[in-house]
Deep mutational scan, measured.
Amino acid sequence: LADDRTLLMAGVSHDLRTPLTRIRLATEMMSEQDGYLAESINKDIEECNAIIEQFIDYLR
């Protein structure tokens, strides 16, 4: 059971955070005209990261 939990934490961490990191990188490359959009996307990314952290904390 502990091994399954560790594997799940690693999978969640990698499989969800990697795309979020790519999205954040894309927002950094957006033009200044789209700053409001990038800010909104980054806020959503932070919310997703917080949910992931809560899930990982729960698994521990």
Rank of each mutant, 00 (worst) to 15 (best):
I45R: 05
N49E: 14
L59H: 10
E32P: 07
E46N: 14
T21P: 14
C48H: 05
I45C: 00
Q54E: 04
A2Q: 13
D44I: 07
I51E: 12
E46K: 02
R24M: 04
S13L: 12
L8N: 14
S40Y: 08
E32A: 06
D4P: 13
L37D: 09
K43G: 06
D34Y: 07
L8F: 08
D3Y: 09
S13E: 09
L59F: 13
A50E: 06
A2R: 08
A10K: 08
E47N: 14
D3K: 04
E28M: 04
G11N: 05
M29Q: 09
L20C: 03
D3E: 05
E46T: 12
D15P: 00
T21R: 10
A26R: 08
M30Y: 07
G11M: 14
I41H: 01
E46D: 08
S13N: 11
G35K: 08
T18I: 11
S13I: 11
T21V: 10
N42P: 05
F55Y: 03
N42E: 05
S31H: 07
Q54L: 12
L20V: 14
Q54N: 11
P19D: 02
T21S: 14
I45E: 04
L59Q: 10
T6F: 12
R17Q: 12
Y36S: 03
K43I: 03
A10H: 00
E39S: 00
I52R: 11
C48L: 05
E46R: 12
L1P: 13
I56P: 06
K43R: 10
E39D: 12
T18K: 00
D57C: 00
T27V: 13
N42D: 10
D3N: 05
D34L: 10
I45F: 15
A38E: 08
I52K: 00
Q54F: 13
M29H: 08
Y58F: 11
I45G: 07
S40D: 15
Y58R: 09
R22L: 05
R24K: 14
Q54G: 10
D44L: 07
L16G: 04
T18G: 12
E47M: 03
H14V: 00
T6I: 14
E39V: 10
A50M: 04
L8P: 08
L20R: 02
Y58A: 15
A26L: 15
E47Q: 04
S31M: 07
K43M: 04
M9D: 13
I52P: 13
K43A: 01
I23D: 00
K43E: 00
L8G: 15
D34S: 12
M30H: 11
I41M: 02
G11S: 12
M29Y: 15
D4N: 09
D44N: 13
T18R: 08
T6C: 08
L37V: 03
V12I: 00
Q33T: 07
Q33D: 05
D15I: 15
F55C: 06
D3Q: 05
E39T: 10
T27D: 14
N49G: 08
L1D: 14
L1Y: 11
N49D: 14
H14G: 01
A26T: 04
G35A: 06
S13H: 03
E39K: 08
I56Q: 08
A2Y: 13
M9K: 11
L1E: 13
Q54P: 13
T6S: 15
G35L: 06
S40A: 09
D44E: 01
E47K: 08
E46Y: 12
T21M: 10
I41T: 15
A38P: 08
L8I: 04
H14L: 01
I45V: 09
M30R: 06
R5K: 10
V12Q: 02
A38F: 03
D57W: 02
L1R: 12
E39P: 14
I52F: 08
I51T: 03
T27G: 11
M9F: 03
D15T: 02
I51N: 03
D15V: 00
P19T: 11
A2H: 15
I45K: 08
I41E: 15
I23Y: 03
R5N: 09
Y58D: 12
D4L: 11
M30I: 00
R5D: 04
R5T: 14
Q54Y: 08
T27M: 02
L8H: 06
T21Q: 01
R5V: 11
L1M: 12
L20Q: 00
R24G: 07
L37A: 07
E32C: 06
G11K: 09
R22T: 03
E28V: 13
D3S: 04
I52C: 09
L20K: 08
L7S: 04
I51F: 04
T6G: 06
D3F: 09
D34N: 13
R22S: 05
E28S: 10
F55K: 00
Y36K: 11
L37I: 14
I23S: 00
D3H: 04
M29C: 04
Q33P: 06
V12Y: 03
L8V: 12
R17W: 08
M9L: 04
D57P: 13
L37H: 05
L16Q: 01
L7M: 04
M29R: 01
D34P: 13
Y36C: 04
I51D: 11
I52T: 12
